[in-house]
């Protein structure tokens, strides 16, 4: 267990500078976005009010007040989220290939550590999950900051304040922050399963090279199909209730995760030679 924590810490430290840069970039873009959408809105309000001789309440009645969706649907917010997600998706591959394709084939040193090889796999998987969840956590704080900026720029009369429950029920936020903690665990558990499947596919490629790419691709397709079995059944028969689809998807995900871990353990032990 101690070895596992050491390896997780090692993986976190390796990515920490880039990860911090990513957080700073997302923060800066979203804060700029909060200022820009607010200033643009106020500029539009002032111009229209002057041109059409409207009061604030008349403007709101005719054109609508500023609400948090103005920010959520802005390019600043959307691009920052897409950018962060892309970096993390790239890192899912990079976390393995860096060790193999780097200058000194660092993977061989990792594999020769006096610990079970599966700990390397678990450590990388944990690190990815921690990075994703940390970004998700930072985004919660960022939304608070953005709201404060908006409150500072747009007066109460021109702004609609929405409850936290409502803000988080919108668009990408509703996906990142499911309604209940249980759904949160299920969603990110599903995400961890998908990452585990990709890791195992990478190990297929590392084990069997060109043939491994084909094996990895087939393995990913089969895994996705297994995870999606409840959704496929529902699409064809309409027989299941939503809570049953969620429950069954949890079961198929756990099954897929189990297979991914077993195959990864097998490949690391038997097929990857130092």
């Amino acid at each position: 267990m101690n070895e596992y924590f050491k390896l997780v810490n090692f993986e976190v430290r390796r990515f920490s500078k880039l990860f911090l840069t990513l957080i700073v970039a997302v923060t800066v873009v979203q804060i700029i976005g909060a200022f820009m959408t607010s200033f643009n809105f106020m500029e539009r309000v002032e111009t229209t009010m002057a041109q059409k001789q409207l009061g604030e309440s008349e403007y709101v009645l005719e054109y609508g007040a500023y609400n948090f969706q103005n920010f959520i649907f802005s390019e600043y917010f959307i691009l920052s989220i897409v950018f962060a997600a892309t970096i993390l998706v790239i890192y899912v591959f990079f976390i393995w290939y860096r060790d193999w394709l780097g200058k000194s084939s660092f993977i061989y040193r990792l594999l020769m550590l006096p610990t079970a090889r599966r700990n390397i796999y678990f450590a990388k998987l944990t690190a990815i999950l921690l990075f994703v969840l940390c970004l998700v956590g930072v985004q919660i704080a960022l939304i608070e900051v953005v709201q404060q900026i908006i409150h500072g720029i747009i007066p109460d009369q021109l702004r609609v304040d929405q409850s936290k429950a409502y803000i988080y029920s919108f668009d990408v936020l509703s996906f990142l922050y499911p309604k209940t903690p249980l759904l949160f665990i299920l969603l990110y558990g599903l995400g961890a399963t998908v990452v585990a499947v990709v890791f195992t596919a990478i190990l297929f490629e590392r084990s069997y090279h060109l043939k491994g790419i084909l094996l990895g691709a087939i393995y990913i397709i089969i895994s996705i199909l297994v995870i999606a079995i409840p959704v496929i059944i529902q699409d064809i028969t309409g027989y299941l209730y939503l809570n049953e689809i969620i429950g069954l998807t949890a079961v198929t995900s756990i099954l897929t995760l189990g297979v991914a871990l077993y195959l990864a353990d097998y490949l690391l032990k038997r097929k990857i030679n130092v």
């Binding site: 976190v12 921690l130 969840l133 919660i140 922050y177 949160f184």
Partner: peptide
């Protein structure tokens, strides 16, 4: 660094819910 990340996750997600 590891503890900081775990702390951010636990605190922020708890506050959110």
């Amino acid at each position: 660094q590891l503890l900081l990340i775990v702390g951010v996750i636990i605190v922020m997600v708890s506050i959110h819910y």
